[in-house]
Simulated scan of single mutants.
Amino acid sequence: MFKKGLSLILLLVAFSASAVPTDDIAQVLKAQEAAWNRGDLDAYMQGYWNNEKMRFVSGDKFRYGWEETLAAYKRNYPDKATLGTLKFTIKEIKMLSNYGAMVVGRWQLTRAKDKPSGVFTLLVEKIDDRWVITHDHTSD
């Protein structure tokens, strides 16, 4: 009986350890990358928390809110030529809890005349059973 109980506990611990949602979080970024490359900024923004408390930091600018961030993307990337092709490279997904993670990586745009690139650090949280970006710090 003890051996059977111990086996069940070990199985539960192993299952819990393998249930880390890093694949779900990576999928959020893959979906964003695909939406960007289709030229669909509205779909791209689905990876962000649709809330006025969502933060986006880039350069010397602080942006608060999903709507303001979407408007800024549409202003700064008005057409397919400026959007280019986006490539994310995730360097690390660090789980902070069952409901939060830090994602660190690189981004690169490939456009006809240039190839801007940079780094990002994201706070991704599970809200209403969805992983969403609640804080984005992106730089060149």
Rank of each mutant, 00 (worst) to 15 (best):
K87V: 08
S139F: 01
V13L: 15
A14V: 13
R75A: 15
D24N: 13
T22L: 03
W49H: 09
K3R: 12
D23S: 13
K4R: 15
Q27W: 03
N50K: 12
R55S: 14
K30H: 13
V57H: 11
L10G: 14
P116D: 12
V119F: 09
S139A: 10
E33G: 07
W49A: 02
D136T: 03
K91Q: 14
G100F: 01
A14G: 13
V124G: 00
G65W: 04
L70M: 08
G84I: 01
T138S: 13
I9E: 07
T22E: 07
K115W: 02
I9T: 11
N98K: 09
Y64L: 12
D79N: 15
Q108L: 10
D128T: 02
T138D: 04
T69K: 01
D114G: 09
V119Y: 11
A112Y: 07
L70H: 05
Q27F: 08
N76F: 10
T22Y: 02
L8S: 03
D136L: 03
K30W: 00
W131Q: 08
L11C: 14
Y77I: 00
K3A: 13
S117E: 14
F62T: 09
T138E: 04
Y99T: 10
L70T: 05
P116F: 08
D23H: 10
Q32F: 01
M45N: 04
W131S: 05
F120A: 03
D128Y: 03
D40Y: 05
M102D: 13
G105Q: 11
W131M: 06
D140S: 14
G84L: 02
A26I: 00
A26V: 00
R111V: 09
K74N: 04
D79Q: 04
L6R: 14
K94N: 12
S7I: 06
W36I: 00
K53D: 15
D24T: 06
S97G: 06
R63A: 05
L122D: 06
K91E: 15
I127M: 08
N37W: 08
G47Q: 00
V119I: 09
K94E: 14
K3Y: 10
G39Y: 08
K113F: 12
S139E: 00
A31I: 01
G59Y: 09
V132R: 01
S16A: 15
P116Q: 10
V20I: 08
Y48C: 04
V57I: 14
I133D: 03
K4C: 08
Y99E: 11
G65R: 03
H135D: 06
